[in-house]
C-alpha cells in the first residue's frame, strides 16, 4: 500500500508539472498582456518599467523557468493586476468562502441526491420515480444562470424573503447553497438510480433473495454498497467543482470566493493569478483523486491493490 501511494504521488507530481506548463504557455498565447486592460495610453518607458518589474521582458522560456523555480519553493508570485497582493494570500482568503457554502451545498445535495436516486430505483416506473427524474432532468438541463436569476427574482425580489445577492451574513448563504445543491441532487439522483437498477439485476441479489433475506436486508446488505460505488468516482469531481464550478454562482451572487477572482484574473490577463489558481485547482483535483483511489480500495475488495496477501 505504501509503495502504491508513493508511486501515485510521483505520477501526481508529473501531472501537476504538465498542467502548469500547459497553462503557462496557453496564457501567454492569448493576445494582449496585463497592461492591455488597464490603460490604453501609457508612456513607453512606464510600460517597459512594468514589464521589467514582473520579468515580462525576459524571453518566454526563461520566465517559465523562473516561475517553476518559484513554484518549487512554494511561491506563486504576486498578482500583476493588484500590486502587492500575493497570489497565495488571495487563494487563502477566497477559497474558504467557496469551500464553506459549496461544501455545505455538496453534502446536502449529495445526500439528497443519493436518497432520491434510491427511492427512484426502488419505485421504478411509479410516481416517485417520475417525480425524482423530473427534478433530475430539470437540474441537469437548466443552465445555472437561469436557475440563479429565477431564484433571485422569486425569493429575493417577489417574495423578498432573502437578499438576492451579497455576502457576509447567514441569510446570504441560503440561495447560493440551494442553487449549488440542486445541481448535485440532479447528478447523484440520476447516477444512483442507474447504478442501483443495474445492481438490482445482478445474480447475487437473486442469491440473497433465495437465502430468505427480506427486501430490506437484501437492499441494505447487498445492493446499497455495490450500487453506491460508481458514485464515489464522480464525488472527486464534485469536490473540486465546489471551487471551480462556482464561477457563475459567485459572479451572480457577488460572493467573494475563489471562482469570482479566477474569472476576473483571466479577463485581466493576470498571469500569476491565473497560474496560481490553476495550480491550486490541479493540486486539489490530484489529491482528491489519490484520496478516492485509496477510499475505493477500502470499499471494493476487487481493486484492493496487490500485495495485500
Amino acid at each position: 500500500m505504501g509503495k502504491y501511494i508513493i508511486k501515485r504521488t510521483f505520477f501526481a507530481f508529473l501531472t501537476l508539472i504538465a498542467v502548469v506548463t500547459i497553462t503557462f504557455f496557453l496564457m501567454r498565447s492569448i493576445p494582449g498582456d496585463p497592461l492591455a486592460g488597464m490603460a490604453r495610453a501609457l508612456p513607453e518607458e512606464t510600460k517597459q518599467a512594468f514589464y521589467a518589474k514582473y520579468g515580462l521582458d525576459k524571453p518566454l522560456f526563461e520566465q517559465y523557468l523562473i516561475y517553476m523555480k518559484g513554484l518549487f519553493h512554494g511561491d506563486l508570485g504576486e498578482s500583476i493586476r493588484y500590486a502587492g497582493r500575493p497570489v497565495m494570500k488571495t487563494i487563502a482568503e477566497t477559497s474558504p468562502i467557496s469551500g464553506l457554502y459549496g461544501g455545505i451545498a455538496l453534502v446536502l445535495g449529495t445526500l439528497t441526491g443519493v436518497i432520491l436516486g434510491i427511492v427512484a430505483a426502488l419505485n421504478k416506473n411509479r410516481w416517485p420515480d417520475y417525480i425524482v427524474m423530473f427534478i433530475a432532468i430539470l437540474g441537469t438541463t437548466l443552465p445555472v444562470f437561469v436557475l440563479i436569476s429565477l431564484a433571485q427574482w422569486v425569493f429575493g425580489v417577489k417574495l423578498g424573503w432573502l437578499p438576492p445577492s451579497g455576502w457576509g451574513e447567514l441569510k446570504h448563504m441560503i440561495l447560493p447553497i440551494a442553487v449549488s445543491a440542486f445541481g448535485s441532487v440532479a447528478t447523484y439522483a440520476r447516477y444512483v438510480k442507474a447504478s442501483m437498477l443495474d445492481t438490482l439485476d445482478q445474480d447475487y441479489v437473486l442469491t440473497a433473495k433465495a437465502k430468505g433475506l427480506s427486501d430490506f436486508q437484501v437492499i441494505t446488505r447487498h445492493v446499497l454498497r455495490n450500487s453506491l460505488m460508481p458514485s464515489v468516482t464522480i464525488f472527486a469531481g464534485s469536490v473540486v467543482g465546489v471551487f471551480t464550478g462556482a464561477f457563475v454562482t459567485e459572479r451572480m451572487f457577488a460572493i467573494p470566493g475563489i471562482g469570482f477572482y479566477y474569472i476576473s484574473s483571466i479577463n485581466n490577463n493576470d498571469y500569476t493569478m491565473v497560474l496560481g489558481t490553476t495550480v491550486f485547482y490541479a493540486v486539489l483535483f490530484i489529491v482528491m483523486q489519490l484520496v478516492l483511489d485509496i477510499v475505493y480500495t477500502l470499499i471494493d475488495p476487487r481493486i484492493r491493490v496487490s500485495g495485500k496477501k
Partner: peptide, 28 residues
C-alpha cells in the same frame, strides 16, 4: 405470505444458480 416465504427460502428450499462468477456478492 412474505414472512413465510422468507422463512422457506434458503431454509427449507434452497437454490444454486448457473453462473457462480456472478452469483456471489463481490464486496462481501
Amino acid at each position: 405470505d412474505k414472512k413465510r416465504l422468507q422463512a422457506l427460502r434458503g431454509n427449507e428450499i434452497s437454490m444454486i444458480f448457473q453462473d457462480p462468477m456472478t452469483s456471489l456478492n463481490p464486496t462481501m
